[in-house]
Write a protein that binds this DNA or RNA. Structure first.
Lengths: 188, 188
DNA sequence: TCCTGAATTTGATGTTTGTCAATTGCTTTG
DNA sequence: CAAAGCAATTGACAAACATCAAATTCAGGA
């Protein structure tokens, strides 16, 4: 399983053998059953994870409503950005929507790798850049005025989400309520 | 002027003298008069810049309307993420709202520094992480349902923007139109 | 298979926001 | 100082969306 992560990192920057050895030792594979939590609000996010199989949902509570901020699936990097980088408890929850397997690296061990292996800084930087780029795409969609346009963006770019994600979560992700999303879908 | 940038980088990661020397040679200071463009859509963004003084606005065109995506001011890092990282022309415009002075580093020279100086990877990574964190805060605000709440977030966290930015830009930044923003403000 | 609860759709209605138009206020420049 | 141009406000109305309620469809477990 861990080979997939190693291979992915190697596409970003060729890693020296010692770095690969360290990764094999430090990266842990973990399974999360559907509906189990990778992170709960109030906790400090101590791990960056790479999703090997499955799908997760990130959300926070606004009053009593769950506001979905992100869906992540195979190949994605996942953590709570705020909590992981600031080392403080955050308000973000991450839950498995499907049975999910991830490769995890602890914050402290990541810092160790950054200090020890220059190449790992490059990998960390490039992964962060990719994450940033994906986030900008999301924001671009969120700033659209009409619900219809936001929904069509998902249809066009992430159609598999429609098969894998309950509409109630997709609705808050797109900043509308469930009934509105249902009506938009019904228009066709 | 460039000392401010060097000092800032040093707070992230102590830089060896050769890196500092390289930066002094490669980083250029440039002034942009109010209303002049740091980047126009269709161009490839070749520079990452640090704002020393002033304020900029990033926006793109949706049909004929300018949609503001970002305000950046003293201390911020500025580039078009998509274009700078992908090396392709983007749809983003960056314009100076006030007279603005920036320290600029060219993409190619940045890559050179990454290869030559491990410490610079750390700096690049940390700056990217900070940018990412700021973007998440923006998205958090954008996902709020009511215009009133989004506006109050600005009042609370970035009140200086209200003094420095015309309302018409703030409106599209918050995803509402000018009249709606004006009415929200008038409620008090 | 049937039952139960969850997911989704549909309906009626009120609130918020967008749009268009006009007005007022401000600023800058000749 | 006056005129011109831009910024901001206000009003009237329409469109989009939220809310509350109920009905229908779907899926998993007994």
């Amino acid at each position: 399983m861990i080979d997939a992560v190693i291979a992915y990192f190697n596409t970003i920057c060729a890693m020296p053998d010692e770095l690969v050895d360290d990764l094999r030792e430090l990266v842990r594979i973990k399974d999360f059953k559907k509906d189990s939590f990778l992170l709960k609000s109030g906790q400090v996010s101590n791990y960056a994870s790479w999703i090997l199989t499955g799908l997760t949902r990130s959300y926070y509570l606004r009053d009593t409503e769950e506001v979905t901020t992100k869906f992540l699936w195979e190949g994605a990097t996942i953590t709570s950005v705020y909590s992981f980088y600031s080392r403080k408890p955050g308000n973000e929850n991450i839950v498995a929507i499907e049975d999910t397997t991830v490769a995890m690296l602890h914050y402290n061990e990541m810092q160790t790798l950054y200090k020890k292996h220059p190449a790992f800084n490059t990998i960390g930087r490039v992964i962060t850049e990719k994450y940033l780029y994906m986030l900008e795409i999301e924001v671009y969609n969120l700033r659209k005025q009409k619900g219809e346009d936001k929904y069509q963006f998902i249809v066009k770019h992430f159609p598999h989400l429609l098969q894998r994600v309950p509409l109630k979560y997709l609705a808050t992700y797109l900043g509308m309520n469930l009934e509105t999303l249902s009506r938009i879908r019904g228009k066709r």
